[in-house]
Nucleic acid binder design. Structure first.
Lengths: 197, 197
DNA sequence: AACTTTAAAGAACGAACGTTCTTTTGTCAA
DNA sequence: TTGACAAAAGAACGTTCGTTCTTTAAAGTT
């Protein structure tokens, strides 16, 4: 066996793409096909290296399974200047698992699809998915999912003359000044948007 | 074979828990152990029902793989009216994979941090993380990461008098009309925003 | 050109696997 | 308590799997 080499990176990519589609690590025979190789024993050698490099591991029953590293994506080191074009993109930098980035407490986190345009000035569009951490308290300025009169709404939490108010980020919508009950369902901790492709 | 029954829900849960830990569907023999059953053929019958119910499917090589439904998605039934408060949130699911939502081809996907305000009217803010799928071609109207004069920029791809142009989503920024070379680095397929907590 | 190392392929084999068919157990109603 | 049907187990079998060992091909070195 030799060390992890550049070609193995290529094999890893192919395996990652296959896994993304089928959510399973296939047999050696199938891997021959996937990796473009005709030798099962060589496939095993490759997997052993990917294992040593920390991208795969084996269950107590010797089944190949992906590790956390397997799912990590590169976060480009340099950033893209959306104002004026500049900077370069390198893939050397950090790697991220998006789920980890957005979710601290899985059991307290809910995904909610946003409906409507009332938060558009905060860059929150109809159809965006809000990552909401359930809790009962929030700070001034937090964007919260609140329950007002038994109904849910996404707004910025603010205070006006000692009273809590829910402020939309769109002048066309009214500020909500709860009369009866107002309860915080959770706080917005992340936002996800998917573009059609 | 009979219909999907309440007990199958229990089997599904056990399978989901196993998968969450090992990221693979095990063999029938192992499934006997996992599901608390001593008959391979009965395990197969169960899996056939889970398949009919849409939680599993089989690859062309007859390998069992989880479907989208297999990963509980609180998304489905829970939308928040950001315009006017309404709708209810049901929290059935407890496991979701954001990465899957945004990433089709892991090896071609890069995360890039957005700098500047030129796309702000498209709801893309400074500091947002762009999910970019690397490819050399794009369609009119796509938001792309382009390389203009050796520099990177995030803009909407458009055409003007037969010429490709890069349009910002902010009137304060100029439309870019590439004179020399223009190359597409990739297409924006997703956006991630993280709120401080 | 001869040698060495690495990459890849091939062959062989027992163990494990999925499938199908048959048998037993459990449940409930007539 | 018998009959009917569903749930679960068992048995049998050809196929595929992972593993190990051997062989060939390519690349690099002396």
């Amino acid at each position: 066996m030799t060390d992890f080499n550049p070609k193995d990176t290529e094999y890893l990519s192919k395996l990652q793409d296959y896994y993304a589609e089928w959510k399973s690590i296939p047999s050696y025979a199938k891997l021959c096909e996937v990796l473009g190789i005709t030798s099962k024993s060589w496939v095993k050698a490759i997997l052993d290296r990917l294992c040593a490099a920390g991208f795969l591991e084996r269950t107590p029953d010797a089944v190949w399974v992906p590790t956390r590293n397997f799912f990590a994506r590169p976060l480009a080191e340099s950033t893209v200047q959306a104002g004026m074009p500049t900077a370069a993109i390198s893939n050397e930098g950090e790697y991220f698992v998006i789920d980890d980035m957005l979710i601290d407490t899985p059991s307290k986190t809910t995904l909610i699809t946003v409906k409507g345009e009332s938060m558009i000035d905060a860059g929150i569009h109809d159809g965006d998915v809000a990552v909401v951490e359930k809790r009962m308290t929030a700070n001034m300025g937090d964007i919260v999912v609140a329950i007002v009169d038994n109904e849910f709404t996404l707004k910025t939490l603010d205070k006006e003359r000692g009273q809590f108010i829910l402020r939309p980020a769109n002048p066309a919508f009214p500020v909500i000044r709860p009369q009866g009950s107002m309860e915080i369902f959770g706080v917005l901790v992340g936002l996800i948007r998917k573009y059609r492709r």
